[in-house]
Design a binder for these strands. Structure first.
Lengths: 246, 246
DNA sequence: GGCATCTGTCTATGATGTAAACAGTTTCTT
DNA sequence: AAGAAACTGTTTACATCATAGACAGATGCC
């Protein structure tokens, strides 16, 4: 298990860095991740630039490149930081369904608190410690199901996909457009109004009906039940597989 | 239904542009969309820049801004172009389940053919003609279900979320990393190898087990059945709701 | 003590998205 | 018919970005 070929970031993230010669590093990837996450939380992902992160830390732009070899690396660090350690412990007698629900809700909470996570352009599979930790927890949820490893993996990814998608949808409907100085309500209403301007009821009867019902301009209680509703469906799909295997 | 307050792009996309004074436009948003999509298909989304699109069309960078007021607008045009008109017609006697399956498969096909769609940073809700057309088709699938408009919308979005997520997962596992001159197989193996380097079997038993089973380095037949598997689960979730309403 | 190796910094480069001013073209008004 | 008004694509300009390369100083090993 030599670290030789591993990218620098990974060695730093996993704490595999050995004694080195030169001056002691003044910051850590952890510092960098914290600073970057803070910026993204406050001003959105586009506000995260190498120079901004460095400035907030009190160093020059290029200093970051001693820890991170590219902006993609920075993104990876940010994700690791945003997810943090998977801190939920499954109740002793909980079945896979309950465990997976807890996992999904924890993931949802992360995404709700850091909506920019869904905008991070992914270019590599997750290899950071916390990401692997979440993966471990997700797979453990299926420990006693009799599923094959491949099936456990697929099932976990399915739930992950669902959580990401539904959260994206929800934050997208509430947070996204409020950057232009619009409240979410105003943004919703503007959307509905424009749809109304554009959509011919004869050609788009179903959209018109939805529009007329106010479903589009009123998102009350949408977010609340939507998550559980869909998750139940997804878990049912997995349950079919589990039953077949046992 | 005046177009007064509508952004230019929308008027152009919907063909609501009236007679104007100056010289006749030399290109159309359609041309721009086609060019941009071609670039994204060939070289990926990051390759799509204002200058590149303009150059490919034979004009200067700034000329695009006569049609599109920002890069976000360009993205909207690209999405409209990529989705195209929803061309599937539901069989006469098909139930909502069959209709929604057709819709989902059509959406999957679009995403498979234009993987970059999932990387487009969304900043506004969909208002382009083709997007609305897909929305209409999706809502129509639930026409005779007795669901409320809100529920139809939620159900459609749920399926959409699923399709986007699962497709992202699949293309992400096969296409993404092949940019660095790695085949997908090589990328998978590199990933598995690095995980193996980093993951302590005692601390990450489930990940280790998955790794040991080869599930991570061998993605054969993953894509094939995965889509239907998950979609069935999602539709079952919706079916529960439909049954309750009828 | 000297050398290799690391640190953060400085300077430089090419690419990007977009604002502003411009000259030419078409249509509308008179 | 003539001029004004509105639009076209172009040119020039700028701030910001990610990142490459060279540098002087710091630290640990021989």
């Amino acid at each position: 298990m030599s670290d030789d070929e591993l990218p620098r970031v990974l060695r730093l993230l996993w704490g595999h860095e050995e004694r080195r010669r030169g001056p002691k590093p003044a910051m850590s990837i952890h510092d960098i991740g914290t600073a970057a996450v803070k910026i993204a939380d406050a001003d959105g992902l586009p506000a995260v630039s190498m120079s901004r992160v460095a400035r907030d830390l009190g160093y020059t732009t290029m200093s970051l490149y001693r820890y991170v070899s590219s902006k993609d690396d920075l993104y990876a660090v940010m994700l690791d930081e945003a997810y943090g350690e998977f801190a939920v412990s499954y109740p002793a007698r909980a079945g896979w369904r309950r465990r997976m629900t807890l996992w999904a809700e924890a993931a949802r909470d992360v995404l709700t608190q850091h909506p920019w996570v869904l905008q991070v352009p992914l270019s590599e599979p997750p290899l950071s410690p916390n990401q692997v930790g979440w993966m471990e927890a997700g797979l453990q949820a299926f420990a006693d199901t009799g599923l094959t490893e491949q099936e456990k993996l697929s099932s976990m990814l399915l739930v992950d996909v669902y959580v990401r998608g539904i959260t994206q949808l929800m934050t997208y409907m509430t947070v996204a457009n409020s950057a232009d100085g619009l409240t979410e309500q105003e943004a919703d209403q503007l959307y509905a109004k424009r749809l109304d301007q554009l959509v011919d009821p004869e050609r788009y009867p179903a959209v018109s009906a939805a529009l007329g019902s106010g479903s589009l301009s009123d998102d009350s209680d949408f977010a609340v039940n939507e998550f559980d509703f869909g998750l139940k469906g997804v878990l049912n799909g997995i349950a079919a597989l589990v039953d077949r295997r046992s």
